[in-house]
């Protein structure tokens, strides 16, 4: 590698450090026995993890977040399958506009989605609950699910399904026996990504959950209290670990899916 290459490499390493700075600090403070989040460190302690485990509000928030994330990811992925198949397999009038509109929540500020939905729900008189959060999360997870699923569907040779049909299967049989198994890795990774997004989503949960806490809204409420911060650090550490594991699994399935249908290992989400 030449000189400019080495310069770029050094820059890339520094940039990664910048990207990872908060994540590296997280476990450091989570295991620090001091109550103030600052250097120098006081000593090693697992106290914050124990406190976290025994916190009932936190458990409730966790249960709520899991309920929301599972529901929203399943719904978003199911809707995403329809959209991804429609966009990769069929030409229909208004396709660009419709797809653009469905993908819009990817760039639209969440505050707009949350506020407008809130205004309508209050106007119609719907009680805020986990259901309203699920509705909002499904909307914002859907574009990500579609992005992942579209790569899975579009890398699929169209004649595979025709071949199954030609060999005597029904349309549904061809889809179930050929298309579905081949896009299954994409479906799993869409589920995981939607799950991760929903689990971490704050604004919609904050405005649409009523009195029910979720993990992010719980964290937000605790950030004001310096005493509560070490527990939040512990919680953050656990969440980061979970996210990394889920993403690694998602990535594994995506690549395995690609390898199976002979695609390239790069590409993927976004």
């Amino acid at each position: 590698m030449n000189r400019s290459g080495r310069g770029l490499q050094a820059y890339a390493v520094i940039y990664l450090l910048f990207l990872y700075a908060p994540i590296i600090l997280l476990p450091i403070f989570a295991f620090n026995s001091g109550t103030i989040i600052a250097f120098p460190l006081q000593g090693f302690s697992t106290e914050w993890f124990e406190q976290m485990w025994s916190n009932t509000t936190l458990r409730r928030a966790l249960a709520n977040s899991l309920t929301i994330a599972v529901s929203a990811s399943v719904l978003a992925t199911c809707l995403g399958i329809f959209a991804a198949r429609a966009s990769t397999r069929f030409a229909f009038p208004g396709k660009g506009g419709i797809m653009g509109f469905i993908m819009l929540p990817m760039v639209l500020p969440e505050i707009i989605v949350a506020m407008s939905l809130l205004v309508v729900l209050l106007g119609v008189g719907v009680q805020l609950s986990l259901l309203t959060v699920i509705a909002g999360h499904t909307l914002i997870c859907m574009p990500y699910a579609i992005a992942v699923l579209s790569t899975a569907f579009s890398s699929l040779d169209r004649s595979l399904e025709e071949a199954a049909y030609d060999l005597g299967e029904s349309r549904w049989g061809a889809f179930r026996l050929v298309t579905l198994p081949l896009v299954m890795p994409g479906i799993i990774s869409a589920l995981l990504i939607s799950f991760t997004i929903s689990l971490d989503e704050f604004i919609i949960a904050f405005f649409l959950a009523g009195n029910e806490p979720t993990l992010p809204t719980y964290i937000f409420s605790q950030l004001r209290f310096p005493r509560a911060i070490p527990v939040i650090m512990a919680l953050g550490t656990v969440l980061v670990l979970i996210s990394i594991v889920l993403l690694a699994i998602g990535e594994y399935f995506r690549r395995r899916g690609n390898a199976r249908i002979g695609g390239s290992p790069t590409g993927g989400l976004l």
Binding site: E162, A163, A164, L182, R260, I261, G262
Partner: peptide, 9 residues
């Protein structure tokens, strides 16, 4: 088929 459409799974 031109691509043979062999089911890869």
């Amino acid at each position: 088929f031109q691509s043979y459409a062999i089911f890869p799974h």
